[in-house]
Simulated scan of single mutants.
Amino acid sequence: MNQAPIGIFDSGIGGLTVARAVYHRLPGESTVYFGDTARVPYGPKSPETVRRYSLEILHWLLDQGVKAVVIACNTSTAHALEALQSESPVPVIGVIEPGARAAAGAGRGGPVGVIGTAGTIASGAYARAIRRVRPGTQVEQRACPLFVPLVEEGWFEHPAAELIAREYLAPLRETGVDALVLGCTHYPLLKPLLQRVMGDDVRLIDSGEETASAVAAVLEAEGITAPPGTEPRHRFAVSDDEARFLHVGSRFIGERLDAAELVAVD
């Protein structure tokens, strides 16, 4: 057993949906969350830049004494997971593989849809991961960049959000996907809207929830779960604009955020 915290990081605020899933799945575990708000978004940046940023954050989290690291960012997972796993002395878990496994096992064996940022979709990481589990699967991908600002504005059910969702998702509906992977950590906050647009017969795959289950399995396998009765502590750190992180982040975490540390990583 191990009382050390779990490190969680994202390019900004969206990874808080993964943090929330970890809190629910592992209520006795402490966490340290880092949001790279000075350099968000990662989606349009080159794979080399994303890897460099991610390695810098990994080293900062290791300095905080974490026992495992969760990459709560699809773009970082797509471009940097292998580099971080090679560099890290503690387990590193990304969000793509758990979501892909769930998608491959969902539905009726038909096509699988994936939505995400331009960077995640361009990487093809979800399609490769899904086909590793279920070879030959038809994977239909769609970049949905406008979802991120809609979520950060809190426009989860705004008419503009529904108009944009219907436009983005029309090709996936026409294809008849069985399951839809929410391949960006912002997107779970749009779940009711996305389910309505796609229809009840399409299963939505929340990579954050699947990742939390994967983290639980890794901690158990490594024998590093927190002792029973441990009182968890959750720290938050950002690289810029603590005020906005606290304000917008409360929507993601589902409760008020009172404090965030400002730190520089390099």
Score class of each variant (00 low, 15 high):
residue 198 M to P: 01
residue 33 Y to G: 08
residue 178 D to A: 12
residue 19 A to C: 13
residue 44 P to R: 10
residue 61 L to P: 02
residue 189 L to G: 13
residue 211 T to L: 03
residue 41 P to Q: 09
residue 77 T to I: 01
residue 118 A to I: 15
residue 228 P to M: 13
residue 48 E to N: 07
residue 77 T to D: 13
residue 141 Q to G: 07
residue 61 L to K: 12
residue 114 V to E: 12
residue 90 V to Y: 03
residue 115 I to T: 15
residue 247 H to W: 08
residue 89 P to A: 07
residue 161 A to D: 02
residue 122 A to N: 13
residue 164 I to M: 13
residue 68 A to G: 13
residue 190 L to R: 08
residue 22 V to G: 00
residue 134 R to G: 07
residue 16 L to Q: 09
residue 176 G to C: 06
residue 159 P to H: 07
residue 107 G to C: 11
residue 133 V to A: 12
residue 237 A to L: 10
residue 66 V to R: 02
residue 60 W to L: 05
residue 61 L to H: 06
residue 52 R to D: 12
residue 138 Q to K: 13
residue 30 S to Y: 00
residue 33 Y to P: 06
residue 259 A to K: 14
residue 227 P to H: 09
residue 21 A to V: 03
residue 115 I to P: 12
residue 57 I to M: 15
residue 176 G to P: 09
residue 62 L to C: 01
residue 133 V to H: 08
residue 4 A to M: 00
residue 245 F to D: 11
residue 176 G to M: 07
residue 54 S to D: 09
residue 102 A to N: 04
residue 134 R to K: 15
residue 17 T to F: 03
residue 260 A to L: 05
residue 148 V to Q: 08
residue 204 L to Y: 03
residue 188 P to Y: 11
residue 162 E to M: 00
residue 200 D to E: 15
residue 20 R to P: 01
residue 40 V to K: 05
residue 128 R to N: 11
residue 157 E to T: 14
residue 155 W to L: 11
residue 122 A to M: 10
residue 83 A to K: 03
residue 32 V to R: 05
residue 251 R to Y: 10
residue 30 S to M: 07
residue 179 A to T: 12
residue 154 G to Q: 05
residue 104 A to K: 02
residue 16 L to F: 06
residue 202 V to L: 04
residue 85 Q to T: 14
residue 107 G to W: 08
residue 126 Y to S: 09
residue 264 A to F: 12
residue 186 H to I: 00
residue 54 S to N: 12
residue 217 A to H: 06
residue 31 T to E: 13
residue 230 T to W: 12
residue 237 A to P: 09
residue 238 V to Y: 10
residue 211 T to W: 02
residue 113 G to T: 05
residue 247 H to M: 10
residue 239 S to K: 04
residue 121 I to F: 09
residue 79 H to D: 08
residue 255 E to R: 15
residue 229 G to T: 13
residue 120 T to A: 02
residue 1 M to R: 10
residue 148 V to H: 10
residue 71 I to F: 00
residue 116 G to Q: 11
residue 169 L to A: 05
residue 211 T to Y: 00
residue 179 A to S: 13
residue 93 I to H: 00
residue 48 E to P: 08
residue 210 E to G: 06
residue 103 A to L: 08
residue 25 R to T: 14
residue 95 V to F: 04
residue 122 A to S: 14
residue 152 E to W: 02
residue 87 E to L: 07
residue 32 V to I: 15
residue 36 D to G: 04
residue 19 A to H: 15
residue 228 P to N: 13
residue 209 E to W: 03
